[in-house]
Design a protein around this nucleic acid. Structure first.
Lengths: 173, 173
DNA sequence: AGGAAAAATTAAGGTAGCTTAAGAAATGAG
DNA sequence: CTCATTTCTTAAGCTACCTTAATTTTTCCT
């Protein structure tokens, strides 16, 4: 959260892991520079990206940190990054949080929920092509910055099929 | 929210609509009895269910009510229900909300976000069969109560294909 | 600059899940 | 109880998207 100054920032290199499957998340992270991703790995070994976190974004596993459960997600740096570590104990008990901060948190939770719901709508009701176009419109800066295979993973298709789609989209112009 | 007593409850009949595409949501709803659904309709005219709200649940379109946008979702009663109407003005400005209620809301937002994230994981990384089994385990009472075609819509498949899956699941026992 | 690694493309063949359509079963209204 | 409506099932043919694998292009490292 913007108000939390208690955490030091740390440099992490591309490829470094901040949370692993099975861990109980002790920190959330605010990205100061660079970019992180959170993702799951399915039965067949394939990676599915839940979130990208470029500068200014928060990332973590709320289920693990809130409920002290082993995490089902991984969090890795996908660029060299500077990241602050926010102890999850900090917002464990909402009752003990000062009102201003709680308000700020609620707004973030609400916005996050709205965004997450949009993604569900998209996954349920749009084709792969539509989801790709939507992604490029919603996150134009990420499109320029991230490998296509990560974008494919985020929108729920294979890199090969995304490549096909891009060719078709380019052709029809 | 549990604390909000200001809203009267109203009976709504199966099939009645509480929110339509294009409306700006003026109310959220707490279901006292019965069941509601929220859903979108895609380009091809197909319905995709975002949420079921049986007794005790809240339902609404947060994006529309927060941002005063025309809604992209519909909310209908799927059983005869008793529903309370919570004016969205009530939680429009988080700063003006009393601390206890804000805490309660934050916890609900957080839990909702955790659940919503699980659904994204499921949509990205599980097969239709796995999603169906997951649904029956997560919402056993809804499975007994709802038409299968609504469950199919929620997990993102057609009723015909769900029927196939159920036959295969039954056979392999 | 040069070689290795990562990312992207292309193409052929495959499958999960969809479409259409028709019939059977269950539910509901009068 | 009966007719109408909704739900569920079955099956055949189809398509969006996947798998595998090979090639090209780009990026990265020293």
């Amino acid at each position: 959260m913007d108000n939390i100054k208690i955490s030091k920032t740390k440099k992490v290199l591309k490829g470094e892991r901040l949370l692993s499957f099975g861990d109980i998340a002790k920190f959330a992270h605010k990205v100061e520079s660079g970019c992180l991703k959170s993702y799951v790995i399915d039965n067949t070994g394939k990676e599915h990206i839940l979130q990208f976190a470029p500068e200014g974004w928060l990332i973590g596993d709320m289920d693990s940190s809130t409920n002290k459960k082993p995490s089902v997600v991984f969090i890795d740096a996908i660029e060299d990054s500077e990241v602050s570590f926010i102890p999850t104990s900090f917002f464990e008990d909402f009752h003990s949080i000062e009102k201003g901060l709680l308000t700020e948190m609620s707004i973030k939770l609400r916005n996050n929920l709205i965004a997450t719901n949009k993604r569900i709508i998209s996954l349920l009701s749009a084709t792969a092509k539509e989801r790709y176009i939507e992604f490029t419109q919603t996150y134009p800066t990420l499109v320029q910055r991230l490998p296509l295979k990560l974008i494919a993973s985020y929108i729920g298709i294979t890199p090969e099929y995304l490549s096909d789609l891009r060719r078709k989209i380019a052709k029809q112009k």
